[in-house]
């Protein structure tokens, strides 16, 4: 293969994207605390990580919040996407679309601050949501991820062949039946992708959670963030390696499955 500039650019670009991450993975197996000296391969930092009860508890809290918020946000987001693509014009539709996409560009600091002010007001009037609970964080994360899921599902619904749905409606199926029998199976890969994205976003968020969470709902990113303020710590290397492995395995499995399904459909 002869030398080409474009290959050189690609190599440098991907080096920039992946080198920092590879560094984390490599140094998570370093026995020494310092990056400067590579002493020998060890799983010491993984052991330290697993025996840390604070990190374990925060991980559980985070996963719980992420699961709940991803599920609810996928349900609400699919509804919103159907409203945007399939419903006739109704008064306030433009406002609806605007409001549902706005969190995409909203700085996290503002979202966290404004939601906290709402929760403080609500707590004063209704006594709910209690700030120590995970409820407030879950609500905040649903609002954050809802717009991403809506955009994703909406794009898929627009690409989809509408004739199939119309045929089912002409043959006398109710709109609800059409949705569950026709539309849902077709868009289900997108919905799973939306769930994964919402899960990842929720597991990732530190700013909104820091504003909204009370003392009882410390999430994993909050702990990572506070330890990063003090610089390098090898436990975070180990944690990052675990998180990266889990997330990339999830994404790769998803990609392989959709790819296989596509080729399978083509063969059929």
């Amino acid at each position: 293969m002869r030398f080409r500039w474009s290959n050189c650019i690609l190599f440098l670009g991907y080096l920039f994207l992946y080198f920092p991450l590879i560094c984390i993975v490599v140094y998570s197996f370093n026995e020494s605390r310092f990056v400067a000296s590579w002493t020998r391969f060890s799983l010491k930092w993984y052991k330290v990580l697993i025996s840390n009860p604070i990190i374990l508890r925060a991980t559980l809290t985070s996963i719980k919040i992420a699961c709940f918020s991803a599920t609810i946000s996928v349900i609400l987001g699919t509804m919103a996407a159907i409203i945007i693509t399939r419903f006739k014009r109704f008064s306030g539709k433009t406002i609806f679309i605007g409001a549902i996409t706005a969190p995409l560009v909203m700085p996290e600091v503002i979202m966290g601050l404004s939601l906290l002010m709402l929760f403080v007001g609500m707590e004063k009037i209704f006594g709910w949501p209690a700030r120590s609970g995970v409820c407030a964080v879950t609500i905040a994360h649903i609002t954050l991820t809802l717009s991403y899921v809506t955009m994703l599902v909406q794009a898929r619904l627009q690409d989809m062949d509408k004739a199939i749905e119309e045929a089912a409606l002409d043959l006398g199926a109710s709109p609800i039946k059409v949705f569950f029998v026709i539309t849902l199976p077709i868009i289900s890969p997108t919905i799973i992708l939306g769930w994964l994205l919402a899960f990842a976003l929720s597991l990732d968020d530190v700013v909104i959670a820091s504003f909204v969470a009370g003392p009882g709902a410390t999430t994993l990113p909050m702990i990572v963030f506070s330890s990063l303020r003090f610089g390098i710590s090898p436990e975070i290397n180990a944690l990052a390696t675990i998180l990266m492995t889990v997330l990339s395995i999830g994404v790769i499995i998803f990609a392989v499955l959709t790819y296989k399904k596509k080729t399978w459909n083509k063969e059929k």
Binding site: V224, A240, L243, L247
Partner: peptide, 13 residues
């Protein structure tokens, strides 16, 4: 898809 904080941490390192 990897955590945002981890990507920032990579540069600290």
């Amino acid at each position: 898809w990897t955590s945002f904080l981890i990507r920032v941490y990579a540069w600290i390192m």
